[in-house]
Amino acid sequence: MSWMFSRIDNMGRFLTTNIEYTINVVLMVYVSVRAAVLDRAQGFRQIFSVISAQIYFTGWQAVPLISVLALAVGSILMLQALSNLTLVGGVEVLGSFMIAILVREVAPLLTAIVVIARSGTAVASEVGTMRVNREIEALEVMGINPLSFIVFPRVVGGLISVLCLSFYFNVIGLIGGYFLTKFFHEIPLGFFLDSLANAFSKEDILVFVLKNSFSGIMIFVVCCYQGMLVKKSPHEVPQVTTQAVVTSVIYVTVFNLAVTALYYLSQLQKLGLV
């Protein structure tokens, strides 16, 4: 019997630790927004300069990598779809296929992973190093709230960047993918655009905003939170950075999966199948 209790104990410990962590992360979103709103000294110009720097590093500098990824993924998906749909004579559903796979699923997930790899790691190690160098304490001593000065602008900058990057991923994936595919397979542009327009629905906008907003906020809050966990020693910085990547990927993946499951459940409900 003892092995059973031991397993239940371990499961309970795992659950409570993760629930507590999630509560802390969500709380950090609230306290950073609260600090930014209540901070009378921090002017719009100061916040805007950090937000624009964050958009530059996270959004603008990721454009080349996102372009290559989007082109490759868009072309691969279209070639695979065409080779299989042609066999069964269903080329007219190409648009639906691309919207379902690329716009709803692949673009939000890949954009989030690129942002975690490029900027999440940078933010976690930056904040961790600031803790080691006592810059966070120095800000507090000067009466500058680190939550409004460091966390809030990074989260807002990250949110805007992820939304823009994901939109860009979709455009390059669909249009660029089409032009690359034209080397191998002749499809009229008008037919392709019509097919996309017919497949696109207002729920896709909701899915796009939900998935990418969550990723943008959670990646940067988790990375700032992990950075803040550093106590004093530089050896903790790579540890918290690794943990920030793992945790961000888990949050983003689980949320994407949950939204997809709910979306398809609602579609099945509309069709009266559930």
Binding site: L38, D39, N133, R134, E135, E137, A138, E140, G143, N145
Partner: peptide, 23 residues
């Protein structure tokens, strides 16, 4: 809270034994 303590904090000067500069 941080905001409530701010008026007191602004009359305190604090020098660290090491570190503390914004890099």
């Amino acid at each position: 809270s941080f905001e409530e303590f701010l008026p007191y904090r602004l009359s305190i000067g604090y020098s660290f034994d090491y570190g503390g500069l914004i890099n």
